[in-house]
Design a protein around this nucleic acid. Structure first.
Lengths: 254, 254
DNA sequence: GCGCGTAATTGACTAAGGTCAAGCTGGACT
DNA sequence: AGTCCAGCTTGACCTTAGTCAATTACGCGC
């Protein structure tokens, strides 16, 4: 009996939002210690996903939101014929599963890019907690809205940016998110394949490969398979806005 | 006194969801007559927008959702430099303004493409009504989720489809929505400019022009400025999936 | 009815990125 | 250690759509 209790405690502790390393980056950010206990209670627990395994798929009924604890995921939609469009890559502290909030059915799919650990927030519980803790509600809304803005950026990128710009923006976004996680923003470990990157950016894999090589030749990057070092963050940043000069002149003229 | 009362009744009637031509296509779809009265009360009223005028802009605080009653809108995001990416075009019965539900700030802009009439649903009222009428809540969620799926399709189109396919898909989507409105799905009146279409599809205006010409030569369309007749819906449909053969073969091989 | 300006079309040319094919690399599995 | 194979890289070539420039058509105000 005492044994079972201690196991439970350990489990509790391990999954407790208060003691989690992502505490400051995840939903609990800015929530009082008292309220945290309630949030803890709403978290069903951890779940571990192997590389390539699916967290939810298109059509699944909506049960929960999921926070990435460690590892990374990709989310994507798949058309009738089976080819996919990647919607996003998700690092620790980021939340996936919003897409089903409206219809109660997922309209996309989430898959682990590497062995990953996930916090499951069953929606029924979450709803209760959220309605009682305004700060948590606001935090959740902030996260969702960040997501919407991310999607807009993705669309703009698809529509207007050219290949080199796209990759630069992608890398800079990853770097920024690394920094938010207190990781070194100049040393990226790409958990996704070149195919995935190409797909996400609306390019083909050969183009990604050539761009990596070119950026390496330019002295911006040091690429070694999945490991990418950003040697010149300043130059990388300048590539992100490359084609904007023309646009601004256009507007001035009008 | 009797005069003022009759004016009020008239106004009530005119804006009443029950008597609106869009009744079956808009939020009230599938809602009982009793509940309709409550919904009516939540609608602040009509608003008329001239061509080019803005319904809400980036940063505006979130006050309401808006149903297009007549005319049409475009929604778009604008980056620092001022060039825009169109997110969608919105016909009667369609709802805009969701983008601010999470953050309470709009993160996009909505503008009338022609003289348009709009129903305003102040969010505070709507929240009350929605919480009391489950059917309305479900309907609202259905509409939002349709929106999310639309966005996914847009992204897929931007990423993978080529120019002719994009335009075909765009026209077919418009046609489908015309049919939903009980309009003739083969006679489209494009309220947006070629520039807007190009922007929406991630192309340049010259390409749109050439594609219209080409599709006319192929006997699929009959184009006359803003007026587009779909002569061969079957051929148009076949253009929508043009590049999918390759994809399916790829998958079969794997 | 007559210009004016914006929107649209058309043509010639160019460049960006896709396609195809070949080769390389590094890890997984005997 | 050796083989296999998916993932990645590289090169040659080609297609698509973008760019630039000229022209036409239309809607609007006078």
């Amino acid at each position: 009996m005492s044994f079972s209790a201690s196991v439970l405690d350990l489990e509790q502790l391990r999954r407790s939002c208060g003691s989690c390393a992502l505490h400051e980056l995840c939903l609990p950010a800015g929530i009082s210690a008292d309220d945290l206990k309630q949030l803890d209670a709403a978290v069903r627990g951890k779940r571990t996903l192997d590389r390539g395994s699916t967290l939810y798929r298109d059509g699944d009924s909506f049960g929960a939101l999921y926070v990435v604890r460690s590892g990374s995921l990709k989310t994507f939609v798949q058309n009738e014929v089976g080819d996919q469009q990647i919607l996003g890559f998700h690092l620790p502290g980021e939340i996936v599963g919003f897409d089903a909030m409206a219809s109660n059915r997922h309209v996309s799919q989430a898959e682990a890019l590497e062995r990953s650990s996930i916090c499951e927030l069953p929606y029924a519980h979450l709803q209760n907690v959220v309605s009682e803790i305004p700060a948590l509600y606001r935090q959740l809304m902030r996260v969702i809205s960040r997501e919407v803005i991310e999607e807009h950026k993705h669309l703009v990128m698809m529509g207007k940016q050219q290949a080199q710009e796209k990759l630069a923006i992608f890398l800079e976004s990853l770097s920024d998110r690394y920094v938010r996680l207190h990781r070194d923003g100049t040393t990226l470990t790409l958990s996704m394949s070149r195919y995935d990157i190409a797909n996400y950016l609306g390019l083909v894999v050969e183009t990604i490969s050539r761009l990596f090589t070119r950026m390496e030749e330019m002295g911006i990057l040091e690429v070694n398979r999945k490991l990418v070092r950003i040697r010149r963050p300043d130059l990388l940043a300048s590539l992100c806005g490359a084609s904007n000069m023309a646009a601004s002149r256009l507007n001035d003229a009008g």
